[in-house]
Design a protein around this nucleic acid. Structure first.
Length: 546
DNA sequence: TACGTTACAC
């Protein structure tokens, strides 16, 4: 049987799934009365794992399961790994059942592969069950479970597992930190991220590239782009993820210039940009309204590097033309570019129409976007606002009715900020905070302070807002206004104040925030549902175009 | 033989 093995390994090295399949065909199926050879079997798996054509993998795996071979741990680990890669839950659970029927014990290798398979297939509770039944756990098993929670969006649970692991006195490795730091990024937990950063140094993992990349990402997502930059600058070896994270981080914060500087550095030392790089670069061009430069990257540099532009790149171009005030060109670009535009792309143009007060085009696009994505509350709000601004109360009433009929409700606005590792949450018009009274006083004080600087509450929108329970004056108590008041009360100058909001900021809060940054001489960083705003000296990095 | 990452739009 040795020839199977040697042939198999050759296949594996050459990544020829076709040859691996021939090997598989020599392995007996259930109809035959003798067992196949597990070594040749495992080498087929190795070939599959190196294969880039995942489409074939499911079929081959399915055939393998029906061959009469006694599997060893290596087989299970490989099969499970492939099921995880191709998100093949059905086959994965069958293999799990086969494992339970057999006499193999669950070693840590098999267990972590199994947990990972369930996690990647979105079956968090199945992964958890496997974990809870284990006799033996190690750092990899713990990390596999953390990854499961992380990849399915349970960021706090991910972080909580670290406590459990510590209780068992299992030491974390560099993968553990990567996942934990990314979980911090998911909830923008800057304080927690700082603590993990310190631990990374203590454990000696700070030179692991994935850990560093996770730190760049975490700091950027948590609003501390300057810390990202520090981590990035200190790196001796960078990979493409490091460069892309830094470029996209700057772009996300509206710091287009810095993004393009990093991009130029990257080019000058000969690192080849990728698909993702150009999303960041074009997004940076959009922020700076660099129309010619943007089209140069799209039409020439990307072509030269043989990177096929995707929807994301084209959406950035829509944003770019919009920023430059070229709404008709943007509209035309969308009509003439052969790509399947999604609601996001149309909303980009819609927002530009709103900002540029081109309500005729805006209303047409909004009606269209609502057809495409009838569940997005933001589009109804925008359309209603545009009707209100054009004093079309019939339109406002129509939207209100439409939302009632379709039972579409606005998610309550919430903002939060971190002070000495404590998270303070503020709800719109809420009095849930123990220091509510003082906070409301502070809001009044701030609003009085910015009135002489030109603040005029955007009442038109409020009075005809689509929310039934809207009360007059509620504008003053939007969650981010409460949060900034509290931040200014508690965070001493000159530290910046970082606020996170669940929805997008409203126009009124945005103009108030600009003036507050000027009146109090503070840097205010707000992450809303889709981007970062840096308010300083009366200006915002989104240049009022968000 | 197992666990880890970057992106569009608002």
């Amino acid at each position: 049987m040795h020839h199977f093995f040697s042939q198999g390994s050759r296949c594996s090295r050459c990544s020829h799934v076709g040859s691996a399949l021939k090997v598989l065909d020599t392995v007996p199926s259930h109809d035959d009365d003798h067992d196949g050879d597990v070594f040749s079997y495992n080498s087929v798996l190795s070939a599959l794992m190196e294969s880039r054509e995942m489409g074939e993998v499911a079929g081959v795996l399915g055939r393998m399961v029906n061959r009469c071979v006694v599997w060893d741990n290596v087989t299970y680990v490989n099969v499970m790994g492939l099921c995880a890669q191709i998100r093949e839950l059905k086959l994965g659970s069958q293999v799990h059942a086969r494992l339970l029927r057999g006499s193999l014990t669950f070693d840590v290798y098999v267990s972590s592969a199994l947990i990972d398979m369930y996690g990647k297939c979105g079956q968090v509770s199945d992964a958890r069950k496997v974990f809870d039944n284990l006799q033996e756990r190690n750092v990899v098993v713990w990390t596999a479970l953390m990854t499961t929670y992380f990849q399915n969006g349970y960021f706090e649970e991910t972080l909580n597992l670290f406590t459990g692991m510590d209780r068992e006195e299992t030491l974390p490795n560099e993968c553990t930190f990567t996942v934990l730091i990314n979980a911090c990024a998911g909830i923008a937990a800057l304080g927690h991220g700082d603590v993990l950063h310190a631990q990374v140094e203590k454990f000696g993992f700070k030179n692991h590239i994935n850990v560093r990349n996770a730190l760049i990402n975490m700091y950027s997502k948590s609003g501390s782009i300057e810390s990202s930059s520090n981590v990035f600058s200190d790196m001796i070896h960078r990979d493409i993820i490091s460069w892309n994270s830094m470029i996209c981080g700057y772009a996300h914060h509206g710091l287009g210039k810095q993004a393009l500087i990093v991009f130029q550095d990257m080019l000058s030392i000969g690192v080849c940009p990728t698909y993702v790089t150009f999303i960041g670069v074009l997004s940076a061009c959009a922020h700076l309204a660099l129309v010619q430069e943007g089209f140069y990257y799209l039409n020439h540099l990307m072509k030269k590097l043989q990177i096929e532009p995707g929807l994301e790149h084209y959406t950035c171009v829509v944003s770019l033309l919009s920023r430059a005030g070229l709404l008709d060109e943007a509209d035309n670009f969308m009509k003439t570019t052969q790509v399947k535009w999604d609601a996001i792309a149309w909303r980009t143009l819609l927002n530009a129409c709103h900002v540029r007060q081109n309500y005729d085009l805006g209303r047409r696009i909004a009606e269209y976007v609502i057809q495409m994505d009838p569940h997005d509350v933001g589009t109804y709000t925008l359309l209603s606002n545009m009707y209100a601004k054009s004093r079309r109360w019939d339109g406002v009433a129509k939207i209100r009715k439409m939302m009632r009929d379709r039972n579409i409700k606005k998610e309550p606005g919430a903002s939060w900020l971190e002070i000495r590792n404590n998270i303070h949450i503020f709800l719109s018009e809420g009095d849930n905070h123990p220091e509510s009274v003082q906070i409301y006083e502070k809001v009044h004080e701030l609003l009085a302070m910015i009135k002489p600087l030109g603040y005029v509450p955007d009442v038109a929108v409020v009075l005809h807002d689509i929310e039934d329970e809207q009360k007059e004056g509620c504008l003053s108590y939007h969650s981010e206004k409460l949060a900034i008041a509290y931040g200014l009360m508690k965070i001493p100058s000159p530290a910046p104040i970082r606020i996170i909001k669940n929805l997008r900021m409203c126009v009124d809060c945005h103009s108030a925030m600009k003036l507050i940054s000027k009146a109090t001489n503070r840097l205010i960083i707000v992450r809303d549902a889709h981007r970062f705003h840096h308010f300083q000296d009366g200006f915002c990095t989104c240049t009022d175009h968000w």
